[in-house]
């Protein structure tokens, strides 16, 4: 535990020392939110200010949008999904630091010291979870400033639960990327994997559009995509979009993340047994 803590503090210190990176890593999600989220204004699309337009039609449109998105404001829908997608990308970036530690020799230093090998893996995962915590909080604050509509009567428990869901998802994702990084010899491999995995994972989930609107084949993929479950749970807590079952997505997400964590841990330890 001691060594994990020492190395975790190194991760934090390095990250804090790199403020420009912090600013830059916020730009992409903010662009998504401010430009994409704000321009696709679902409600005003159907809000026709015209005499004779029956009030009942208007109400039906509202009802349908509420049913699908859980909010009349697409920005709020997207922002809650982006919190999850952002964690996906940050988990991937977490692996890059491992590749650099290998390439710059720091890993040799760690491997020759009498620390448990597991602490090297754990410190990296904890570092990634820490970064995601801070960045998600900042992103959420920015979303609030841009007009994010939280569910009526939101409590601290909801916020903590949403945070817990994001961390749970990140645990699994960070483990995959860390494992890849322990085996990869340059960071380009990691970026290629990121491009290959992240965008499909994002678009086949409910992070950007609701599952119900998808064609059946896509819906089938979305239902097994952990991003979907995490986004649905986060949205339930922050936006108030109802869930047919709370336990089911949570169980699926937990199974996904814990499996990947354990497999990733085992594989990473194997890779640390010998360096050349």
């Amino acid at each position: 535990m001691g060594a994990t803590l020492v190395l975790f503090r190194r991760e934090v210190k390095k990250w804090v020392g790199r403020r420009p990176v912090f600013v830059m890593s916020m730009i992409t999600p903010l662009i998504w939110l401010a430009l994409f989220g704000k321009s696709l204004n679902l409600y005003s699309m159907f809000n026709v200010e015209q005499p004779g337009f029956a009030e009942v039609v208007q109400r039906l449109v509202e009802q349908r949008i509420m049913e699908l998105f859980g909010t009349l404001d697409y920005f709020t829908y997207l922002a809650s999904g982006m919190l999850v997608v952002f964690a996906l990308f940050q988990s991937a970036f977490g692996g890059v630091g491992i590749v650099f530690d290998k390439r710059l020799g720091y890993m040799t230093r760690l491997l020759v010291s009498p620390i448990p090998r597991v602490s090297i893996f754990m410190a990296k995962i904890l570092g990634t979870l820490f970064r995601i915590t801070i960045l998600s909080a900042v992103l959420f604050a920015a979303a609030l400033a841009l007009g994010f509509q939280v569910k009526p009567g939101i409590t601290a428990v909801d916020l903590l639960a949403a945070w817990g869901v994001i961390l749970l998802l990140s645990l699994g994702l960070a483990s995959i990327y860390a494992t890849m990084a322990f085996y990869a010899n340059n960071h380009e491999v990691l970026f290629a994997a990121m491009n290959l995995i992240n965008l499909p994972l994002m678009f086949t989930s409910s992070a950007i559009f609701p599952r119900e609107q998808m064609p059946s084949w896509l819906r089938a993929i979305a239902s097994i995509n952990p991003i979907t479950h995490a986004a649905d749970l986060v949205r339930y807590h922050l936006v108030g979009r109802p869930l047919s079952s709370y336990a089911e997505p949570l169980a699926l997400l937990a199974a996904f993340s814990l499996t990947l964590f354990l497999v990733g841990l085992a594989l990473s330890l194997r890779s640390l047994r010998e360096v050349s």
Binding site: K14, G17, R18, L104, G105, Y106, T108, R109
Partner: peptide, 15 residues
């Protein structure tokens, strides 16, 4: 028991 000074530099140059 040992201290190793490897051929390649290992210090973290961001710290």
């Amino acid at each position: 028991t040992i201290g190793l000074v490897p051929q390649d530099l290992t210090a973290d140059d961001e710290l």
